[in-house]
Design a protein around this nucleic acid. Structure first.
Lengths: 188, 188
DNA sequence: CGCGACGTTGATTTGCCTCAACGATTGTGG
DNA sequence: CCACAATCGTTGAGGCAAATCAACGTCGCG
């Protein structure tokens, strides 16, 4: 396990001693996942929180009629899981699938809880992480209830240019909550 | 300042010594706001985070055409602010207005930052608070892109029965992102 | 008492979905 | 490496969901 990106990600908000890095290293698990592999399947217990060291993932829900709704994309240097199912240790509402060959570091729920007691500074790190995530989702909700599809597509492209390149329009459509056909027509 | 609800809210997730309560008390500010009063106005700098000891607030954005979009309601025992503007100390995207006579406790940004250093346990409290808020917003996004208006209205009523009683249908419509006329028709 | 906001209803228009078809990519097995 | 299948992005016809606009009765507030 190298985890260069993981440690520099954490050290954006707090500083770590070598010993603390060692503890973290011992608890996080590295995993290579090939393109299209499922990391988590909807309905399973969601045991782990993932950090994307390289590659990218998509989190999506599939309803009874088979319609997919994309809740988030995660590229290099992002954290991702089905957070609802992770913090409540419940059945996942989401599936997580690799968009390309990826290297993930992950930690299970109970190890992370223990790590918070061993390294209280991590509470600060995750406080800031969740704070930013909350703000991001609130802005997305506001966009969703106040903007037209055309405006929301433009904002997505402006905010996530690197993601726009990696994913299909069908996936962007399912992130915006519209059909691929309609998104296609909006683009002109 | 009494702050019974404030302290018991914090102590849902961490325990506080008397001295720590004293520090918190000295930094939080009590304020009575009458029904319909603006607590924060869109465009102003958002300096404070609010806790609703009693009463209720609504957070909403008004666009150029004058259309209001409700981002959240906060009743007794909830925390609220324009979180985007608060954590970045930017111009507020939202206005906060009292739905009824309310008692608020609030803290300004820099005092809260200082308090995190004085009482590191508070990082844990807010880590959990933001974690739950993030999950809540993610589920709202998912509902927004995957459900019909009828289903979303039913979920709102089921999830927030006490809010449903306090607010107008116009406000619920602006929370769901539909017009009052359409919500009215959906209810049958 | 009277004004203004609310909730509802109906007529019309617009946004968006559904379904089907098509060429262009992508991926896969022989 | 090629041939075939599958998925993608696009287009168009038709239908439904939701917005717009106007009208009207009700209610709370000044």
């Amino acid at each position: 396990m190298d985890g260069t990106k993981l440690f520099s990600n954490i050290q954006k908000h707090i500083t770590l001693e070598d010993l603390e890095k060692e503890w973290i290293r011992s608890i996080f698990e590295a995993r290579d996942v090939p393109k299209k592999q499922l990391v988590l399947e909807q309905g399973q217990l969601c045991r782990r929180l993932y950090f994307v060291e390289s590659g990218s993932l998509r989190a999506y829900n599939t309803n009874k009629q088979g319609k997919e709704s994309t809740l988030m994309f995660a590229v290099q240097d992002w954290w991702i899981t089905d957070m609802y199912a992770f913090v409540n240790q419940k059945q996942a509402l989401l599936s997580l699938k690799a968009l390309e060959d990826s290297l993930l570091f992950s930690v299970n729920f109970h190890d992370l809880e223990a790590l918070f007691f061993k390294i209280p500074k991590l509470e600060r790190f995750f406080r800031i992480l969740f704070q930013n995530a909350y703000v991001r989702e609130q802005l997305r909700v506001l966009d969703g209830i106040s903007l037209t599809t055309e405006e929301r597509y433009a904002r997505f492209v402006a905010k996530y240019p690197q993601i726009t390149q990696k994913v299909t329009q069908k996936q962007i459509a399912s992130y915006l909550g519209v059909t691929p056909e309609f998104l296609s027509s909006v683009k002109k």
